[in-house]
Protein backbone atom coordinates (compact mmCIF):
# COMPACT_ATOMS: atom_id res chain seq x y z
CA UNK A 1 0.00 0.00 0.00
CA UNK A 2 1.46 3.33 -1.01
CA UNK A 3 1.26 6.62 0.82
CA UNK A 4 -1.20 7.90 -1.80
CA UNK A 5 -3.56 5.01 -0.97
CA UNK A 6 -3.52 5.95 2.71
CA UNK A 7 -4.01 9.68 2.22
CA UNK A 8 -7.77 9.67 1.69
CA UNK A 9 -10.42 11.67 3.58
CA UNK A 10 -11.93 8.52 5.17
CA UNK A 11 -8.58 7.63 6.78
CA UNK A 12 -7.99 11.04 8.34
CA UNK A 13 -7.18 10.77 12.07
CA UNK A 14 -5.70 14.17 12.80
CA UNK A 15 -5.86 17.61 11.21
CA UNK A 16 -5.90 21.16 12.45
CA UNK A 17 -9.31 22.25 13.73
CA UNK A 18 -11.53 23.91 11.13
CA UNK A 19 -12.07 27.11 13.18
CA UNK A 20 -8.32 27.68 13.04
CA UNK A 21 -8.14 29.47 9.72
CA UNK A 22 -5.50 29.43 7.00
CA UNK A 23 -3.88 32.75 7.89
CA UNK A 24 -0.18 32.23 8.37
CA UNK A 25 0.65 32.77 12.03
CA UNK A 26 3.20 35.47 12.76
CA UNK A 27 4.79 33.42 15.55
CA UNK A 28 8.41 32.32 15.26
CA UNK A 29 9.05 28.72 14.17
CA UNK A 30 8.50 26.35 17.09
CA UNK A 31 6.63 28.85 19.28
CA UNK A 32 4.36 27.31 21.93
CA UNK A 33 1.65 29.86 21.13
CA UNK A 34 0.71 27.97 17.98
CA UNK A 35 0.12 24.74 19.87
CA UNK A 36 -2.01 26.48 22.51
CA UNK A 37 -4.02 28.31 19.80
CA UNK A 38 -4.68 24.93 18.22
CA UNK A 39 -5.78 23.45 21.56
CA UNK A 40 -8.14 26.34 22.24
CA UNK A 41 -9.67 25.91 18.76
CA UNK A 42 -9.98 22.13 19.21
CA UNK A 43 -11.68 22.46 22.59
CA UNK A 44 -14.14 25.10 21.34
CA UNK A 45 -14.97 22.96 18.32
CA UNK A 46 -15.39 19.75 20.34
CA UNK A 47 -17.62 21.46 22.90
CA UNK A 48 -19.74 22.95 20.08
CA UNK A 49 -19.56 26.47 21.52
CA UNK A 50 -18.17 28.34 18.51
CA UNK A 51 -21.05 30.86 18.63
CA UNK A 52 -20.96 31.15 22.40
CA UNK A 53 -17.28 31.80 23.02
CA UNK A 54 -15.64 35.20 23.36
CA UNK A 55 -11.88 35.44 23.64
CA UNK A 56 -9.96 38.41 25.00
CA UNK A 57 -6.61 38.82 23.31
CA UNK A 58 -3.77 40.50 25.18
CA UNK A 59 -0.94 42.80 24.30
CA UNK A 60 2.15 40.77 23.55
CA UNK A 61 2.95 38.14 20.96
CA UNK A 62 -0.63 36.80 21.10
CA UNK A 63 -2.08 40.22 20.24
CA UNK A 64 -3.13 38.88 16.83
CA UNK A 65 -4.83 35.76 18.24
CA UNK A 66 -8.07 37.09 16.72
CA UNK A 67 -6.62 36.64 13.25
CA UNK A 68 -6.19 32.89 13.64
CA UNK A 69 -9.24 31.46 15.42
CA UNK A 70 -12.66 32.20 13.93
CA UNK A 71 -14.62 33.07 17.07
CA UNK A 72 -15.61 36.41 18.60
CA UNK A 73 -12.65 38.29 20.02
CA UNK A 74 -12.07 41.52 21.84
CA UNK A 75 -8.69 43.18 22.16
CA UNK A 76 -7.86 44.52 25.63
CA UNK A 77 -5.45 47.21 26.76
CA UNK A 78 -2.15 45.89 28.12
CA UNK A 79 -2.83 43.62 31.10
CA UNK A 80 -6.53 44.51 31.30
CA UNK A 81 -7.91 41.35 29.73
CA UNK A 82 -9.37 39.91 33.00
CA UNK A 83 -11.17 43.22 33.67
CA UNK A 84 -12.67 43.17 30.18
CA UNK A 85 -13.56 39.48 30.53
CA UNK A 86 -15.34 40.34 33.80
CA UNK A 87 -17.55 42.86 32.02
CA UNK A 88 -18.32 40.60 29.07
CA UNK A 89 -19.08 37.60 31.28
CA UNK A 90 -21.38 39.63 33.51
CA UNK A 91 -23.30 40.98 30.51
CA UNK A 92 -23.41 37.63 28.69
CA UNK A 93 -23.45 35.05 31.50
CA UNK A 94 -24.31 32.14 29.19
CA UNK A 95 -21.16 32.65 27.10
CA UNK A 96 -17.77 31.05 27.55
CA UNK A 97 -15.42 33.99 28.13
CA UNK A 98 -11.70 33.42 28.27
CA UNK A 99 -8.56 35.54 28.24
CA UNK A 100 -5.35 34.49 26.53
CA UNK A 101 -2.37 36.25 28.04
CA UNK A 102 1.39 36.06 28.20
CA UNK A 103 3.53 36.65 31.25
CA UNK A 104 4.43 40.24 30.39
CA UNK A 105 0.73 41.00 30.12
CA UNK A 106 -0.70 38.93 32.97
CA UNK A 107 2.13 38.83 35.50
CA UNK A 108 3.62 42.31 35.04
CA UNK A 109 1.35 45.17 33.98
CA UNK A 110 -1.83 43.16 34.60
CA UNK A 111 -0.99 41.65 38.01
CA UNK A 112 -3.67 43.70 39.79
CA UNK A 113 -6.39 42.91 37.25
CA UNK A 114 -5.51 39.21 37.30
CA UNK A 115 -5.46 38.86 41.07
CA UNK A 116 -8.63 40.90 41.61
CA UNK A 117 -10.59 39.13 38.85
CA UNK A 118 -9.59 35.78 40.39
CA UNK A 119 -10.36 37.04 43.91
CA UNK A 120 -13.82 38.25 42.86
CA UNK A 121 -14.50 34.72 41.65
CA UNK A 122 -15.41 35.78 38.13
CA UNK A 123 -16.63 32.82 36.13
CA UNK A 124 -14.00 33.21 33.40
CA UNK A 125 -11.13 31.12 32.09
CA UNK A 126 -7.63 32.57 32.01
CA UNK A 127 -5.03 30.96 29.76
CA UNK A 128 -1.61 32.11 30.81
CA UNK A 129 1.41 31.49 28.57
CA UNK A 130 4.47 31.63 30.80
CA UNK A 131 7.72 31.70 28.85
CA UNK A 132 9.65 33.74 31.43
CA UNK A 133 10.47 36.52 29.00
CA UNK A 134 8.96 39.42 27.05
CA UNK A 135 8.93 37.77 23.65
CA UNK A 136 7.37 40.44 21.44
CA UNK A 137 9.51 43.39 22.47
CA UNK A 138 12.84 41.60 22.14
CA UNK A 139 13.41 39.24 25.03
CA UNK A 140 13.53 41.54 28.06
CA UNK A 141 13.35 40.34 31.66
CA UNK A 142 9.82 39.60 32.88
CA UNK A 143 8.62 39.09 36.47
CA UNK A 144 8.59 35.37 35.70
CA UNK A 145 12.24 35.28 34.53
CA UNK A 146 14.20 32.69 36.49
CA UNK A 147 17.07 33.54 38.78
CA UNK A 148 20.29 33.62 36.78
CA UNK A 149 18.46 33.51 33.43
CA UNK A 150 19.97 35.74 30.76
CA UNK A 151 17.74 38.17 28.90
CA UNK A 152 18.45 41.30 26.87
CA UNK A 153 17.93 43.52 29.95
CA UNK A 154 19.86 41.25 32.33
CA UNK A 155 22.67 39.96 30.08
CA UNK A 156 24.60 38.59 33.06
CA UNK A 157 21.59 36.70 34.41
CA UNK A 158 18.80 37.82 36.73
CA UNK A 159 20.34 39.02 39.97
CA UNK A 160 17.92 38.46 42.86
CA UNK A 161 19.55 41.16 44.98
CA UNK A 162 18.74 43.69 42.29
CA UNK A 163 15.69 42.31 40.46
CA UNK A 164 14.00 40.06 43.02
CA UNK A 165 12.71 36.56 42.45
CA UNK A 166 10.58 34.93 39.76
CA UNK A 167 6.86 35.42 40.36
CA UNK A 168 4.91 32.13 40.59
CA UNK A 169 1.56 33.68 39.75
CA UNK A 170 -0.21 30.32 39.49
CA UNK A 171 0.62 29.60 43.13
CA UNK A 172 -0.53 33.08 44.11
CA UNK A 173 -3.97 32.81 42.54
CA UNK A 174 -4.39 29.24 43.85
CA UNK A 175 -4.40 30.74 47.37
CA UNK A 176 -7.43 32.88 46.58
CA UNK A 177 -10.96 31.85 47.54
CA UNK A 178 -12.25 33.05 44.17
CA UNK A 179 -10.41 30.50 42.03
CA UNK A 180 -11.90 27.13 41.34
CA UNK A 181 -9.39 25.45 39.08
CA UNK A 182 -5.70 26.35 38.88
CA UNK A 183 -3.36 24.16 36.92
CA UNK A 184 0.08 24.34 35.34
CA UNK A 185 0.72 22.46 32.11
CA UNK A 186 3.16 22.46 29.23
CA UNK A 187 3.07 21.61 25.52
CA UNK A 188 6.54 20.20 24.79
CA UNK A 189 5.52 16.58 24.01
CA UNK A 190 2.43 14.95 22.54
CA UNK A 191 1.48 13.57 25.99
CA UNK A 192 1.86 17.00 27.61
CA UNK A 193 -0.24 18.57 24.84
CA UNK A 194 -3.06 16.09 25.53
CA UNK A 195 -3.00 16.94 29.24
CA UNK A 196 -2.97 20.66 28.48
CA UNK A 197 -5.96 20.18 26.20
CA UNK A 198 -7.87 18.40 28.98
CA UNK A 199 -7.03 21.29 31.33
CA UNK A 200 -8.26 23.92 28.85
CA UNK A 201 -11.43 21.90 28.30
CA UNK A 202 -12.09 21.73 32.04
CA UNK A 203 -11.53 25.47 32.38
CA UNK A 204 -13.98 26.19 29.55
CA UNK A 205 -16.57 23.81 31.02
CA UNK A 206 -16.22 25.60 34.36
CA UNK A 207 -17.10 28.94 32.77
CA UNK A 208 -20.34 27.47 31.44
CA UNK A 209 -21.39 25.89 34.76
CA UNK A 210 -23.26 28.66 36.62
CA UNK A 211 -23.98 26.61 39.75
CA UNK A 212 -20.37 26.84 40.93
CA UNK A 213 -18.69 30.17 40.61
CA UNK A 214 -15.00 30.83 40.35
CA UNK A 215 -12.18 31.61 37.97
CA UNK A 216 -10.28 28.89 36.15
CA UNK A 217 -6.60 29.54 35.57
CA UNK A 218 -4.55 27.44 33.16
CA UNK A 219 -0.85 28.27 33.15
CA UNK A 220 1.08 26.82 30.21
CA UNK A 221 4.82 26.74 30.80
CA UNK A 222 6.12 27.58 27.34
CA UNK A 223 9.23 28.28 25.35
CA UNK A 224 10.34 31.43 23.57
CA UNK A 225 13.12 30.02 21.45
CA UNK A 226 13.85 33.35 19.73
CA UNK A 227 14.02 35.22 23.03
CA UNK A 228 16.02 32.47 24.67
CA UNK A 229 18.26 32.32 21.57
CA UNK A 230 17.96 28.55 21.13
CA UNK A 231 16.59 26.15 18.54
CA UNK A 232 13.01 24.99 19.24
CA UNK A 233 14.26 21.57 20.37
CA UNK A 234 16.94 23.01 22.66
CA UNK A 235 14.39 25.43 24.09
CA UNK A 236 12.11 22.52 25.00
CA UNK A 237 15.02 20.70 26.67
CA UNK A 238 16.03 23.86 28.52
CA UNK A 239 12.46 24.33 29.69
CA UNK A 240 12.27 20.77 31.06
CA UNK A 241 15.61 21.20 32.83
CA UNK A 242 15.16 24.68 34.29
CA UNK A 243 11.59 25.97 34.05
CA UNK A 244 9.94 22.88 35.56
CA UNK A 245 12.00 23.30 38.76
CA UNK A 246 10.63 26.79 39.29
CA UNK A 247 7.20 26.07 37.83
CA UNK A 248 6.32 22.43 38.62
CA UNK A 249 3.67 20.90 36.35
CA UNK A 250 0.37 19.73 37.80
CA UNK A 251 -2.93 20.82 39.30
CA UNK A 252 -2.59 23.43 42.03
CA UNK A 253 -6.27 23.58 42.87
CA UNK A 254 -9.34 21.73 41.66
CA UNK A 255 -12.63 22.14 43.50
Amino acid sequence: MTTQDIIKPENLVYAKPSIMNDNTMHYCPGCSHGVVHKLVAEVIEEMGIVDKTIGISPVGCAVFAYNYIDIDWQEAAHGRAPAMATAIKRLLPDHCVFTYQGDGDLAAIGTAETIHACNRGENIAIIFINNAIYGMTGGQMAPTTLEGMKTSTCPYGRDVTLNGYHLPIGNLVAQLEGTRYVTRQSVHTAAAVRKAKAAIKKAFENTLAPEKKGASFVEIVSTCNSGWKMSPKDANDWMVENMFKAYPIGDLKNI
Binding site: M1, V13, K16, G34
Partner: peptide
Protein backbone atom coordinates in the same frame (compact mmCIF):
# COMPACT_ATOMS: atom_id res chain seq x y z
CA UNK B 1 3.78 15.01 14.91
CA UNK B 2 0.48 16.72 14.24
CA UNK B 3 -0.24 17.24 17.93
CA UNK B 4 3.04 19.05 18.63
CA UNK B 5 3.04 21.07 15.38
CA UNK B 6 2.70 24.74 16.37
CA UNK B 7 1.39 25.80 12.99
CA UNK B 8 -1.17 23.09 12.35
CA UNK B 9 0.55 22.01 9.14
CA UNK B 10 0.24 18.27 9.59
CA UNK B 11 -2.66 15.97 8.73
CA UNK B 12 -2.34 12.34 9.73
CA UNK B 13 -4.02 9.37 8.02
CA UNK B 14 -4.21 5.81 9.26
CA UNK B 15 -5.46 2.50 7.85
Amino acid sequence: CGIVCPDGCISVYKV
